[in-house]
Amino acid sequence: MTTIATPRRRFRIGRAGAWVLVGVFILITLFPFYWMLRTSFSTNGALPSHSNSLLPAEGTLDAYRRVLGLSSVSEALEKGGSTASVDFWLYLRNSFIVAISTTVVQTLFSALAAYAFARLRWPGRNVVFTIFLSALMVPPIFTTLPNFILIRDLGLLNTFLGIVLPNLLMSPFAVFFLRQFFLNISTEIEEAARLDGAGHLRTFFRVIVPMSAAPITTLAILTYVAAWNDYFWPLLVGQDENVRVLTVALGIFKAQTPNGGGPDWSGLMAATVIAALPVVILFTLLGRRVINSIQFSGVK
């Protein structure tokens, strides 16, 4: 009897231990985000005296009012904010402009190119595709330096066009990703459309795009998240307030924060909540797709 019971009990203990481990991972992942929220709803001046309280320290929405430019400078200073004007509405708008335009245009042109690489027959197709792919090997900073010079010479520093242009027309990854999917679409459906007299453009928009709606959406989400989160390039070309995106604004906000009395942590955390929220919402709504596509790339 005991010989049967022992391994089972050990198995059960092992299982419970493993579940505890899963719980620990989830806690480690989520607690920092909880702390970010908790701090953003706190009164900055009350943070030191309530540094261990799990609830917001003297709960208030002041931090959000401060970073959204809704309170006056003197009011903000009094609450432990900075003297610099911050307007995260503006930065939010700028981030939306950059991320949406990059996503729409890049996905469209990458899809068109991917279609030509996957389905059309033309001389030099595979050579051109291989050259496109080789760009994946180059570390971005190597091309970033000359790209900066080019954007400056074109007079596009501190313009939206300057921020989006290098990523607007294509990304090697997007072309590669979509080509993989287009290759798997059966040729029969495409040929049927062609026999019905549809041209290549019509076939692409009426047959290929609807049939690849899922991978195209996934790619669009990934592109959007990458554009939204990008820091390096906009930091170089878009410091100006009118085109400043959230990531750059966060860095500047952090640098401007007064040293005496400590940083405006509640203001900073409110700003990070604003910067993170759109992506987290998008991920909550469409996360299943993203997870599946990452898993897909893991197997490929």
């Binding site: 991972f25 989830i26 993170a276 992506v279 987290v280 991920f283």
Partner: peptide
């Protein structure tokens, strides 16, 4: 577990 990856490095 994927959420931190989706959020910007600056955040």
């Amino acid at each position: 577990l994927l959420v931190p990856y989706m959020v910007s490095g600056v955040v």
